[in-house]
């Protein structure tokens, strides 16, 4: 029997939930180790992920540890998607699916992350940087909208791990660029319909319930910061003060 895969995560960010969503979809047993953001860049976690980022997985069935979401997703698909629920056996389709997975990890994730940083987390408003990343976020949505024209899914006629990899970042666009939730996909109707297809799946609700519960355990607001803190400088000052106090 498959032993549960250990998923190390801090609950706030979108990247860990890419992996949990996939595990839910595949029905692979897993257990979550949820820990505070303050511990991500220090031992013992950096022994698991030298890059000091979440998530990371440890699979006791094979003895492997991995810590880049793209590599984790490909690994889980190859090991556990035997029936090709979320992938294609056909090699050509598989390479095309990987192409979109790479587009997510290199094109969507990093740039959406920078948009969130300059719009929300950074205390000083740097308008040209905000404009740069908001514009790139829209450009990425535009590319996806073109690709999805006349199609339900990125590759072929079924949902794959590439589609799912975009969901967690897309879902929080409103909190990244500070727009109304209903304007998240304004002008990108194909993307909106595609996103709604994904978040109507039971796996999504399960992930969001788990996230809410783990956030609450740590006393975090939906934006990932503790109650009473409004930007990253304040958060860092609070973490430092807490660390001093616990000495």
């Amino acid at each position: 029997m498959t032993k549960p895969i250990k998923v190390h995560l801090c609950p706030a960010g979108p990247n860990p939930w890419k992996v949990v969503l996939l595990l839910e979809e595949l029905g692979v047993p897993y257990e979550i180790n949820s820990f505070p953001f303050q511990e991500v860049k220090s031992k013992p976690y950096t022994d698991i992920n030298p890059n000091g980022r979440v998530p990371a997985i440890e699979d006791r069935n094979t003895g492997i540890t991995l810590w880049e979401t793209g590599a984790i997703i490909l690994y889980l698909i190859e090991q556990y998607d035997i029936t090709h629920k979320l992938s294609y056996p056909d090699i050509k389709q598989r390479h095309l699916t990987n192409q979109y997975l790479f587009f997510q990890v290199s094109g969507q994730g990093p740039y959406f992350g920078q948009a969130g940083w300059f719009n929300v987390l950074h205390s000083e408003k740097v308008q040209s940087a905000i404009d740069r990343y908001n514009s790139e976020l829209k450009r990425v949505l535009g590319v996806l909208d073109t690709v999805l024209e006349g199609k339900e899914w990125l590759v072929g006629d079924k949902i794959t791990y590439a589609d799912l990899s975009f969901a967690t970042w897309n879902d929080r666009i409103d909190s990244l660029i500070l727009c109304a939730p209903e304007d998240k996909f304004k002008g990108f109707l194909n993307v909106q319909a595609w996103h709604e297809r994904m978040i109507s799946r039971p796996s999504w609700a399960t992930c969001m319930d788990k996230r809410a519960q783990l956030m609450d355990e740590q006393g975090l607001l939906p934006n990932g910061m503790p109650k009473g803190v409004s930007n990253m400088e304040e958060y860092e000052a609070k973490m430092k003060a807490d660390a001093e106090a616990s000495k």
């Binding site: 890059n51 094979t62 003895g63 880049e68 590599a71 790479f102 290199s106 994730g109 990093p110």
Partner: peptide, 27 residues
Amino acid sequence: EPGTREFYEMNNWLFFQNAGVGPMQGQ
């Protein structure tokens, strides 16, 4: 060889470049 530990670790560092070093050094 696909399926080996080294294969998955190679992908891990490949993604580290594409998702981390490339975008950040690009910025």
